[in-house]
Every structure is written in structure tokens, then in C-alpha cells.
Design a protein around this nucleic acid. Structure first.
Lengths: 210, 210
DNA sequence: CCGACCTGTATTGTCGACAATATTGTCGAT
DNA sequence: ATCGACAATATTGTCGACAATACAGGTCGG
């Protein structure tokens, strides 16, 4: 039992892994076979995923992967800008010495990864930096919203991280965030985070109009 | 047909109207009778409401109204602080002359309501001000998140609006927001909105420790 | 040749019945 | 009298079958 939850997690992971194309139809019967589950479980998963904003459903038509256009990705990033700003501020206000040191270490590893041209490694470190900040901020609601928004951005996030030359710019933005948190300067941390995501938004718009 | 959606909306409205006490159990059979719907529709509604954060469910135990403590209400307000800040900024950047005038009118009506001691009227105007700002900002994602957070706050919002003397303080904060938007000053609008919600958070904390 | 209609098929929506599980109440032993 | 185990009940979880609906392709009339 609890096949419900398993299907939900598997399907969500598959979507986040990019195994389905935007606007691709998700036929219940197919998902039943793929995940070896009853239609009941599949339906529940689809309903949950709809609330998550990952799929959209039309009555009597079915479910499909929701397509997130550039305009919507920009809106999502604008919200992320302020909410991650809040997280950065809280992190600066609450970081212990050990936590500050952990951030500084990530910063050093980022510089090393950029110098070595390791884009995959840098992308991982990027995720780890933001996640560490969330852990320090310890703000359930803000963290939840970021997770929610992040799920809808995966496709664009992927495109961004493979933008050549971006890491050389963003590494210093990341460093500014780290420095502000280490200095326990909430205002500066929020400002640095906002500036960082502002540059992400710019890059998003640049992708839109090549 | 579409009994599903009706039950969801009715039940959500009932919860938002405060017809259920926090942690009150929501037995499926009872809801079936009350809304004259099938268990199927009720289950779907409960699942959706769980995603909304209005009810919580335990496997094989059932659903109950989620209790939102002061600490969580503060967290919610902290997120609202930055997201409504974003909305205020956008509103200042995008407001047409007609929209600015509409805001100014709401401001005048607020002062009148406070002078007349009409707390219900003032509460309505408060909702209308924020909603008008959202319309002007025209930011789907931000508006959606605010709606989401607002739903979880209704109970505390009610307690706040009946706090004697609050309107005399908040009316000037509201006026500051309106002035900033009318002056098309995004920075000031965001700052004013943040200050306003900071005072809401303070009031929340004051309720917690009487 | 084109458009409207109509029928067949694929897919989702709805339901009622049954199974699984937690909660509550009862009984006996210590 | 209190505690534990066990049975009874209430409630939710799961499923398969059927109904309702939308879509595609073909057919008929103009």
C-alpha cells in the first residue's frame, strides 16, 4: 500500500529529470503501465502535480506537462528574487561560525571549479550554496515556496547553466552573497542576492531573444 | 457533473469563513451529506485543500483543519512582506493615471472610515487596497502566492483587524504606500509596503504574548 | 470541391462496494 | 482500581466497472 506516494514521487522525479516534453500528454493508462500502478494512484498523483504547477489538466481531455514560457520564467525569477533575498538576509542574521565557514568553503570550491572549467561541478556547487543558505535561514515557508518555484524552472535552469561564460560572471555574485553573510550584514546579503538573481533574469531574457 | 469543483469551492469558502475550528476533524461522510456530494468529490476537494495548506491529512486517520500557530503566521507574514513589496514596486512602475486616482480615492475613504470608527468598512477598504495593487502590478505568480498565503492567515487576520487602535496606525502606512505609487516611486512603494507589514508582524507577536 | 454533420473510438469522470487500518470500548487479570 | 489485550466500530484506502465526454475520420449534401 501507499503506492500512491511512490507513483507521485516517481512521476515528479521523471518530470523534473526532463523525461517529458512540454505540452506532452500524460495518458493515465500509459502511466499506469509505466509505474505499474492503478489508475487511482495515477489520478491522485496527477492531481497533486497539478497543484504543484507541473502539469495542467483539462476536464475530459486529460493532463499534459505544463509549458513554462520565458515570460513566466521571468515572473518566477522575480518572485525568487525577493524570497531568496529574504533567505539571504535571515542567513546573515542567524549563521553560526561553522555555517559561515561552510559557505566560505563553497565559495573557494566555486572559484576552483570555474578556473578548471568544470561546469557540471560548478552547477552542483551553485545548488549547494543556495541550499545551504536555506538551511541556515531555517524559514519553512520561504523554503517551501522556493522549492515550489524551482520545480517549474528546471528546464530553463538547465539552459542557463549551459550558457557559456555565465559562471565567470556569477561566481563573483555568489562571492558577494557569501561575504555579506559571513560579515553578518543582512542588508548587504539581501542586496547581493537580488543582484545575482537580477542577472539571472537578464540572462533568461537574452535566451528569449537570440 | 463538475460537482467536484463546486464542493471544493464551497468547502474552501466554509473554511475561510471560519466555520470549522482548527484541528477539527473533517469526516468524509459528514462532508458528503453537508454538500450533497459523493465521497469521490469530497476526497478530491480534501486533497486539493491539503495542497493549499488549509487542511492536513494522515493516512488512514483522516483530514482535519490545519492549525496555524503564531510562529507560522509570522513566517507567512515575512514572506508576504517581500512579495507584497514586489507587488507595490511593480504597481508604482506600471500604474496608469486612472489607477493612481483609484488608489488615492481608496486612501481618502480609509481616512473617512477611521474617523467614523467604522472598523468593518475599514477592513473592506484594506482588502480592496491590496487587491487593487495586485491588479495594477499584474504579476500572476506573485498574486498567486499572496492568495495562497492569505488563505492560511484568515483566522489571524480577523484577530488583527479587531485589535483596537490598529486602524489609526495602519491608515498612515497605507497612505504612504498610496503616495509612493502615485509618485511612481518603486523604491518608496516597496519600502512603505515592507514597513506596513513589519507592523503587522509586530502586532501578531503582541497578540501571542498578551 | 468544400463544409457540416454524424458516428466510432479513445480517454477521462463518477460511482458503489469491499478491503485495510486506526480508534474506541470492554473485559479479565493482577 | 489499573493496566493490558482483545473485539467492535468507525473511517479511510483501493479498485474495477460503467457512464460521459471529446476528438478524428469518414460520409453526405450543397
Amino acid at each position: 500500500m501507499a503506492a500512491d506516494a511512490r507513483v507521485l514521487e516517481d512521476l515528479r522525479a521523471a518530470i523534473l529529470r526532463g523525461e517529458f516534453a512540454p505540452r506532452q500528454r500524460l495518458v493515465e493508462a500509459e502511466l499506469c503501465e509505466r509505474f505499474d500502478a492503478s489508475r487511482f494512484a495515477v489520478r491522485a498523483a496527477l492531481q497533486a502535480l497539478e497543484a504543484d504547477g507541473l502539469v495542467e489538466r483539462q476536464r475530459n481531455v486529460g493532463a499534459r506537462i505544463r509549458e513554462i514560457g520565458i515570460e513566466e520564467a521571468v515572473e518566477i525569477s522575480e518572485v525568487r528574487q525577493v524570497v531568496e533575498g529574504l533567505i539571504a538576509r535571515r542567513a546573515a542574521e542567524r549563521a553560526s561560525d561553522a555555517e559561515a565557514e561552510a559557505l566560505a568553503t563553497i565559495g573557494r570550491e566555486m572559484h576552483a571549479a570555474v578556473a578548471a572549467g568544470e561546469v557540471g561541478e560548478y552547477s552542483d556547487l551553485n545548488a549547494r550554496l543556495h541550499s545551504t543558505l536555506r538551511d541556515i535561514a531555517c524559514h519553512e515557508k520561504a523554503n517551501g515556496i522556493i522549492a515550489h518555484l524551482h520545480g517549474q524552472m528546471v528546464r530553463h535552469q538547465f539552459a542557463l547553466s549551459h550558457q557559456p561564460g555565465r559562471s565567470k560572471v556569477s561566481v563573483w555574485q555568489h562571492q558577494a552573497i557569501i561575504d555579506a553573510v559571513v560579515a553578518r550584514d543582512g542588508d548587504a546579503a539581501e542586496a547581493a542576492m537580488r543582484a545575482h538573481i537580477a542577472s539571472v533574469i537578464e540572462a533568461l531574457r537574452a535566451i528569449a531573444t537570440p
